[in-house]
């Protein structure tokens, strides 16, 4: 579900046209500072999309093996495979040990402390659609890649994402790789074989406007979520709603698990577990390898909503 703010979009376009600054300039820097401050991470690096940033992070961490959940979106499999690492999938729990473990969350947004403890001894990289507005004192992944695209919590006007981390060297590496590997101070000199994974100024300006309304949306969303949970709890057949870890966590959707949801006309979360998708068949997993993930793929679906205060809400 997308929620656009036309006035904000037009203002962002006007500002960019007037500034003659288009990519990785002042608005992107301001957005990064804002997201770092709100998330509690030391560094925020904005990029073109969640998958692209996740790929850069994995390239920089250069794990021999990466562990990824079998119930996750295609972006996780794509980034893991494109990183060049040996990819191992795991079921909902327990998680295998690996140099890098990818965690993907929706309703929970970031892994809980208990989940983090079960993850690999190596680094934990999370891909999420939102982030915790009150992070102090809570355990968190080493790197959190948050989508800022039109269907994300902080819904942008275009594809965008941010990588959050406390690792200065990693943040610096992401900055290098997102702009082709070009040296920060020297045009057309390339120290690494990077990608074009840059954030646009127009997307950043729009997102800065959206962030100003975040707290209002959070309040509206908390009330909306409470109502939805009550309704689904009353459904016959064992419907289950993913509980948010804390009320400070902003999410764009309510995850629901119920038998045979197809008839409800709602959005399926994942049609298949990752290991059953043709794209990752080469990993060699057969049907039945990850029963919990396969069950989730059959039963989980997403109920989108725009809270009071959000565009379209």
């Amino acid at each position: 579900m997308t929620r656009y703010d036309t006035a904000l979009a037009l203002a962002a376009i006007d500002d960019v046209a007037e500034s003659d600054e288009f990519i990785l300039k002042g608005a992107v820097a301001r957005l990064e500072a804002e997201l770092a401050a709100r998330s509690g991470y030391a560094f925020a690096v904005a990029g073109a999309s969640g998958q692209s940033l996740l790929t850069l992070v994995l390239r920089l961490l250069a794990p021999a093996a990466v562990s990824a959940p079998a119930f996750a979106p295609p972006e996780v499999a794509n980034a893991a495979v494109l990183s060049g690492a040996r990819v191992r999938l795991h079921d909902a729990a327990p998680l295998e040990s690996a140099d890098v473990a990818i965690w993907w969350g929706r309703g929970s947004v970031t892994p809980t402390g208990e989940t983090l403890r079960t993850l690999a001894a190596g680094r934990v990289v999370a891909l999420a659609d939102g982030f915790d507005l009150e992070p102090a004192g809570h355990p968190r992944p080493d790197v959190l890649v948050v989508s800022l695209g039109p269907e994300s919590v902080v819904a942008g006007i275009a594809d965008a994402a941010v990588a959050l981390t406390d690792d200065a060297e990693l943040a610096s590496g992401i900055r290098l790789l997102r702009n082709h590997g070009q040296a920060p101070a020297t045009r057309f000199l390339y120290h690494a074989i990077g990608f074009n994974c840059r954030a646009d100024e127009v997307a950043a300006r729009y997102l800065l406007g959206r962030l100003e309304r975040l707290e209002t949306e959070l309040r509206g969303q908390a009330a909306e979520r409470e109502r939805a949970e009550e309704r689904f709890a009353a459904l016959a057949g064992g419907a289950w709603v993913e509980p948010p870890a804390r009320a400070s966590i902003l999410t764009e959707a309510i995850d629901v698990r119920a038998p045979a949801p197809d008839g409800l006309g709602l959005v399926r979360s994942r049609a298949r577990a990752l290991h059953l998708e043709p794209a990752v068949r080469s990993l060699g997993y057969a049907a039945g390898a990850f029963p919990a993930s396969e069950a989730l793929a059959r039963e989980a679906f997403v109920l989108p909503f725009a809270a009071e205060g959000a565009p379209g809400g």
Partner: peptide, 26 residues
């Protein structure tokens, strides 16, 4: 489109590199 079809089938390891509609409008 990430290697994903319109029907949601993940057929290939792909890239997330969609052209933004806003850019298309301009």
């Amino acid at each position: 489109s990430r290697g994903v079809t319109r029907d949601g089938d993940h057929l290939e390891i792909g890239y997330d590199t969609r052209c933004d509609q806003l850019q298309a409008a301009v």
